[in-house]
Computed example of a mutant assay.
Amino acid sequence: MTPTHTFEHKAMKTTFKLRLQHQDKKQAQSAATCAIDLIDEIENKLSRYRAGSDVWQINHMEAGQTLFLSELCYDCLCLSLEASAQTMGLFDVTLGRQIEHQKRNEDGQPPELSGQLAMVPNRPAIHCNEPGREIDLGGVGKGFALDRVRELVRDWDIESGIISAGASTHLAFGPQEWTIGLSGKNETKDVTLRDQALSASGSGIQNEHIISPAGHQEAYRHPRVWVLHESAAWADIWSTTAMLMTVDELGAHAGQLAGLFVENPETGGVDTIPATR
């Protein structure tokens, strides 16, 4: 049996854990070192709290200014735009000011939406038409990082493993199966990951920081949701969005996912959401 080597690294306000299977521990260590460097690079580009990061610079743009972006930030923003289209606008990374207001549990109404940003066609750049919008990639950044790490460690001939961003997002790759428990209030349901990602979102985390541009963010639909997808970034996107959807809406989108589960607020159990179309 191929041995599993475990490595940990703190970044993005969580602990990343890499469990890599390889006969050679030194090979696994080298792969993990490069993966950790990549995670740090992604955080340095995508964090809104890192002065000088791409996202920090976007959030400080003035009207008429154009900013050229790193490949990492550009790819993540393009993915986020695609996600906005697929989720009918419920996933929106330009709500940074409202998200921060919610996280800090500040008094009063959240800041009104204002400003306009636009991606520059055919160039890795963004233009500020009017200041006011702020980017927050917290709903996709960890999954985006896991997807990139998977590509990197495979280049190091790591054929199987599971990489995690805290307890919220896991990405398994290769032939090995990994069992993860979905813990509701009164029930735990085990799911098996093989070449799949699992992402969880729930209420009561960072002052219920998931914000809906549709205006119904004041009441989450579910205590907790879990999404299975081949991509960790998309699992993150859909678990974030699913918190704001009704059960009927979830059923309408479940066919796009490898698995969709919600905690039942009445029983505390974990319900599987079937596709309804």
Rank of each mutant, 00 (worst) to 15 (best):
P3F: 10
P3T: 03
H5L: 07
F7V: 12
A11M: 10
A11Y: 11
T14Y: 07
R19T: 05
S30K: 15
A31Q: 10
I39N: 02
R48F: 08
R50D: 00
G52M: 10
D54W: 06
W56M: 02
Q57M: 11
H60P: 04
G64P: 06
T66W: 10
F68V: 12
S70F: 11
L72F: 14
C73I: 08
Y74H: 14
L81A: 11
A83C: 02
M88I: 09
G89W: 10
E100C: 01
K103R: 15
R104M: 14
N105K: 13
E106Y: 10
P110I: 00
P111E: 02
P111T: 01
L113R: 08
L117M: 07
I126V: 13
H127P: 06
H127T: 11
N129D: 13
G132S: 11
R133E: 09
E134I: 01
D136A: 09
D136Q: 12
G141F: 11
G141R: 14
K142S: 05
K142A: 06
G143E: 07
F144Q: 05
A145S: 12
L146D: 02
V149G: 07
L152W: 10
D155Y: 10
D157L: 12
D157R: 13
I158H: 06
E159T: 13
I163C: 05
A165E: 05
G166A: 04
S168K: 14
T169K: 04
G174H: 03
Q176I: 02
W178F: 15
T179C: 14
I180D: 00
K185C: 04
E187Q: 13
K189R: 15
D190V: 09
L198R: 05
S199W: 03
G204E: 07
E208C: 12
Q217A: 13
E218C: 01
Y220R: 03
V225Q: 02
A232N: 04
A232V: 01
M245K: 05
M245G: 01
D248M: 12
E249H: 03
Q256L: 12
Q256I: 00
A258N: 15
N264H: 07
I273Q: 04
P274G: 03
R277E: 15
